[in-house]
Simulated assay, not measured.
Amino acid sequence: MAIAIVFAEYGDPQVLRPIDIDPPTAAAGQVRVQVKAAGVNPVDVKLRRGDFAAAMPVDFPSRIGNEYAGIIDQVGDEVTGFAVGDHVLGSATGQCYAEYVVVDAADVVAKPAGIPWTVAAGLPAVGQTAHTALRQIVVRAGDTVLIHAAAGGVGTIATQLARLWGAAVIGTASERNHNYLRSLGATPVVYGDGLVERVHALAPAGVDAALDAIGGEAITVSLALVPDHGRIGTLVDAEAARTHGIQRVGGRSTVALRELVTLYDQGSLQLPIHATFPLTEAHHAHHEVQTGHVRGKVVLTMP
């Protein structure tokens, strides 16, 4: 038997509970991974609360978790390039809070020895999201980019990627995270009233693009600062995207994930781990994430 985390109703973190399951079996084109660590993301919190219930209802009891790192222990037919014992990471929708996951081999990325398990598990979701989002709003060398919630998981990676691609970054964050953003190469700015004016003072020549990870005020501010609304991307506010002609951005790309892994392995990228919790304490991990004060990632670890 193996442990997986499920929730049988929408609610607070206490609805998360461990159950015993039969370990899954890799079919043709798939590998089974013995999970060493799994990332926890704000979208997991929203799913558990029922924020998406109207548009995307789940069948209870429902599995949860979208990113993992671990060791391949079973290889299906027709798989090439991977073998039992390989260390890997990747994404798998709604199943990663578990001791085993089965994934398509095409979506798996090799984990270099120099990347810790916790970082490897925390990188796929925020990394792929940040990379694809910046490409969608066409961030390039010479741009000035406004990144909202720049100290969070997606913001941390997006800030570093934009800087690596030659853009200047202004990042919104609480004041306690300003030195952290400076360490990533961003110019920090505090949230709240007067944000438009503060950003204008920092970028008198204007802002070329904006990435929003929080919605609300961030959308209003971005609309006021970025002349080309097609270069404003939101990860969370689909209604704003429809109303204002901005982009709903994000998505997965295995090619992008390989690039991110290489950058981390070369020392060009960092991903702080805010906290770790055992798999069976997933409810505590959700409590931490939903505070909104996470710098980097929260990760579940396996026995």
Rank of each mutant, 00 (worst) to 15 (best):
M1F: 08
P18A: 13
P24I: 11
T25F: 02
G29W: 04
Q30R: 08
Q30I: 06
R32M: 04
Q34D: 10
Q34G: 06
G39Y: 04
N41H: 10
P42S: 10
V45S: 14
R48V: 05
F52W: 11
A53K: 15
A53Q: 15
A55P: 00
M56R: 14
M56G: 03
P57I: 14
V58W: 07
S62V: 00
Y68S: 08
A69M: 11
I72Q: 01
G76R: 13
G76I: 15
G76F: 14
D77A: 15
E78G: 01
V84D: 07
V88H: 03
L89E: 08
A92N: 13
Q95N: 13
Y97P: 03
Y97H: 14
E99V: 02
Y100K: 09
Y100P: 02
V102H: 04
V103S: 01
V109F: 12
V109S: 15
K111Q: 13
A113K: 12
I115V: 14
I115M: 10
A120Y: 09
P124R: 06
A125K: 06
V126D: 03
T129G: 07
A130Y: 01
A130I: 06
L134G: 07
I137K: 02
I137Q: 02
V138H: 10
R140Y: 00
A141L: 05
D143W: 06
T144P: 01
A151D: 03
G152R: 12
T159Y: 02
R163C: 05
A168H: 05
A173G: 07
L181A: 08
L184V: 10
T187D: 08
P188F: 07
Y191I: 04
G192M: 09
D193W: 01
V196W: 06
V199F: 03
H200Y: 00
A201V: 06
L202E: 05
A203I: 12
V207Y: 05
A209F: 06
A210N: 11
L211Q: 04
A213K: 01
I214E: 06
I214D: 02
G215R: 10
G215K: 13
E217C: 05
A218F: 06
S222I: 09
P227H: 05
H229A: 12
H229N: 09
G230S: 15
G230F: 03
R231L: 08
I232T: 04
G233R: 05
D237K: 00
E239L: 12
A240W: 00
A240D: 04
A241Q: 03
G245W: 12
I246D: 01
G251N: 09
R252F: 14
A256F: 04
E259H: 14
T262C: 00
D265V: 00
L269A: 02
L271I: 02
P272T: 13
P278G: 14
T280P: 00
T280I: 14
H286L: 10
E288V: 14
Q290W: 03
T291D: 11
H293G: 09
V294P: 06
G296L: 10
G296E: 10
V298H: 01
V299W: 00
